[in-house]
Amino acid sequence: MSTQKPSKTAGWNWFLQRVTGVGLVVLLGFHFAVEHFIVGAANVTAGNTVERITNGLIQGDHVLGQITINMPAFLYQATAISLLGFSVFHGMYGVYNVLMEQDTLRAYEKPIKYFFIVFSAALFVQGILIFLAFFEPFWQVYDPR
């Protein structure tokens, strides 16, 4: 048993884990509602995804029938970005803590920590790149047709 190492960040991280968790209940719930309950996963196309991201226009004809919700574009984009940030933090910090609970892995605490920081950043950047790819000037980079 080694002595306790007090940490200034542990409390904040723990608190953020709770805040993002509660946020994700709402944000991920919204994401599921839009993609699976209103639009329906099989009806998702690049076209209607672009409509949602750029105009905040949620249109679907799934089990519930014809539904059209017109959200302010910035609001929909805010939910998308915060969903990305919250889920990456909550998920990666969660997995990191599962690993750090094992004494056998504590020997590699530093490398694992930096791996998770870099990996989370990469995931976030990946998400941002996907997000940007929905906007016209960027999607032409990927899809010249």
């Binding site: 196309t45 690049a46 995804t49 899809d143």
Partner: peptide
């Protein structure tokens, strides 16, 4: 999956 899908182009994504 989403990322690669989108970078391939809109038709490929769909």
């Amino acid at each position: 999956v989403l990322g690669t899908g989108f970078w391939l182009g809109h038709t490929e994504y769909t």
